[in-house]
Design a protein around this nucleic acid. Structure first.
Lengths: 194, 194
DNA sequence: ATTTTTTATTGATCAGGATCAATACTTTTT
DNA sequence: AAAAAGTATTGATCCTGATCAATAAAAAAT
């Protein structure tokens, strides 16, 4: 249990002793989500950070008018949360729901804070985690500014081939800030050029 | 000396003993930059994280064709670096230069790593720092997806009134991913509606 | 002081992506 | 098995922001 979660420590060169693994396990809660089920709804306070052991989720905001804008996907090995709401206790501005049936590992705020205090390695883990997320987002922002839509889509499928396979196309359009029709046309153009 | 830098610890509720302040000071290097002078050029390895005590800088990428895209500004109290290059040692993909004459506090990589090791509070500081940067960028990305250009500009001047005052308008356009002409027209529209 | 560089505005035209609409196809649900 | 919901494609038209061009004004450099 929690295999991928603990592997994500090793991946960051953080080696945990068996006792440390046991300590952390006391703070974790497993959770299963059915497809389309919410983990978080806008307006509620985000109580947990979720690590994905299996399945896929999306985090999105809803614009007045009803349009959805996906800010992040998460598949196996990724972490998802409305971090601002989690840290401040303010109502969430994002929704999170499952795209596929999913299995999560949850850490609530009290657990997070205690682990930060008790276990230096957990703070290092958290720091590296957020640093990676920051760098990925910076790259994304830079792509938006500098690349054509076609290049951005090719970049996306190169970076996240697993997401492309498992997530409906209109959600990828939403992630890229496009209408589904536009992404469809970009794909057509790419397939012709091959 | 280093006033704002140490104040940024206090602001994050990290209280340093006098000895800790002295310890950290040993790892810092002051640096002055003239307007338009580079702190970092694309292709070089980013050797430092820079904290701005005075002045203003910008970080930007150059698109084939010569167009510049500003990814970040930094004024007093902010930190700027090509973090990916700094952490990995790979050549920088961004340029950083001074918009105004500036005074910086530099931390090089060896210093950064030693401080992370020696001083738990420094790791906490770093974690909070990057978390704040992540949240700000997430908000920016969400604005790009959900707001009109007019709303985004109004948001910008609300969030960063100091930057608007001190930085040329075409750089703000670049930061927003717009042509200078377009931002000029948005401003005209806003001034008429008042 | 005056030349040069940088910055901001406005106009005309163009192009890329949005919007509206229709259809076909696939997957879920019952 | 049938109905419903969700998904993807294509066409026609519109609109926003880019591009090209000219000018004016301000700030820096000499």
């Amino acid at each position: 249990m929690y295999e991928l979660f603990f592997r994500s420590f090793t991946d960051k060169q953080i080696m945990l002793d068996p006792e440390e693994v046991e300590l952390i396990k006391n703070y974790l809660t497993p959770k299963k989500l059915r497809r389309k089920q919410y983990l978080l709804q806008e307006g509620d306070v985000c109580k947990t950070i979720a690590f994905v052991e299996k399945g896929s989720l999306r985090e999105y905001s809803i614009h007045p008018g009803g349009a959805e804008h996906i800010i992040q996907f998460a598949i196996e090995g990724w972490t998802i949360s409305d971090l601002f709401s989690f840290l401040t206790g303010e109502p969430a501005t994002y929704n999170i729901d499952a795209i596929e049936d999913s299995e999560l590992v949850l850490i609530n705020k009290a657990a997070h804070e205690e682990l930060l205090q008790k276990l230096h390695k957990y703070e290092t883990y958290t720091r590296l985690q957020i640093t990676g997320a920051y760098l990925a987002m910076q790259k994304r922002l830079n792509s938006i500014n500098t690349l054509s839509l076609e290049e951005r889509y090719l970049d996306f499928i190169r970076l996240y081939p697993n997401i492309v396979q498992r997530v409906p196309q209109h959600m990828i359009a939403s992630y890229m800030g496009l209408q589904p029709e536009t992404l469809s046309r970009i794909r057509r153009k790419i397939s012709i050029n091959k």
